[in-house]
Design a protein around this nucleic acid. Structure first.
Lengths: 178, 178
DNA sequence: CCCTTTTCACCTAGGTGGTAAGAT
DNA sequence: ATCTTACCACCTAGGTGAAAAGGG
């Protein structure tokens, strides 16, 4: 199984060299070494043991890559086509995560000459010409089924593909418009 | 208005340097200086005057570009997402053609270091590191409405998006399956 | 008269959460 | 008991030719 990450991460970048070419990429790293479960009566995620064994590292290379600093800085950069899977044998280049774990997305800005061996199935290079950014408010917990009605609500209300589950969609038979 | 070119041009390439990066692109050039009309009773395209005035040059850069010679040579390269328009003011990077004219698609293989200023709205560069290929059997005449029942048949039979017009699609009401 | 544009029903392709069945 | 999978109806997004309307 695979699904897009939603809501998608969106960033604006400044301070690039307008005439330099860059790759922009995202990976997703574990926040800690724990597995979680959702405790319904307290509406909280609680530690439920140690993390599952690590998983092959994957990188989402933004499809506009490579592009000039000018191009990247002119637009909001959206990662809405990034796909997640819990299938450790995935062969479609999706990002592999464990369910019921906490993760943190990272945005990487990679000067073109440092990204020539960039690959969806290799770790992002580090060092000169590569910078990584992460935002604490984007930490999330993976699930295969929603544990929390507010999340379900948010997804249905905001994701265009879930329109069929919005109120005044489904379960409104026999309405006669006059 | 714009439509995809169908059937799409598909090529296989050999003889590239596996470790060199290349762009692959297509443009479409006039075959002659004439405008045509279709003569129904003889089922032939006949010259009907001189060509309309030239149109801004456009290039379709294959979306897998740039990629290594190895990558390009491993696959059939399909141009099925290339889009044509007769709108001379088109601002979406589609290839602009005159209706009722004869054209010839060309495939360009461009070594990466020669394609750094490649753009959908600039002519393909020429010279060292760039090669162009064309195939006489791919010459075609542009139309806004089909002139010929065999072409309509071919499109409906071969294009997945036209499935609704195939026999045993439409115009088959009141069939009861037993 | 001949060609072009607009609108339409009908497709392909694929992203949603619900639900029931499966797995551990 | 808890989590995962498979399938479904219902969407978005966009590519078809037919047919009617528009234009020179």
């Amino acid at each position: 199984m695979h699904r897009r990450m939603f809501p998608a991460m969106r960033v604006k970048i400044s301070g690039l060299d307008p005439h330099q070419q860059y790759y922009i990429a995202m990976d997703i790293v574990p926040v800690d070494n724990k597995r979680y479960r959702y405790v319904y009566h307290s509406s909280k995620w609680m530690v439920a043991g140690n993390a599952d064994s690590p998983v092959p590292p994957r990188v989402y290379i933004h499809p506009d890559s490579p592009a000039s600093g000018e191009t990247w800085m002119r637009q909001v950069i959206s990662f809405d086509k990034l796909k997640l899977t819990n299938n450790e044998l995935d062969d479609q280049g999706h990002i592999i995560l464990h369910s019921m774990h906490k993760y943190q997305p990272r945005v990487h800005v990679i000067r073109k000459d440092c990204g020539d061996d960039l690959s969806p199935i290799k770790p992002v290079p580090t060092g000169e010409g590569v910078k990584a950014f992460s935002f604490p408010e984007t930490v999330f917990t993976t699930v295969t089924a929603y544990q929390n009605q507010q999340i379900t609500r948010l997804k249905i209300d905001r994701n265009p593909f879930a329109k069929g589950f919005r109120d005044s969609g489904r379960n409104r038979p026999n309405i006669i418009w006059t």
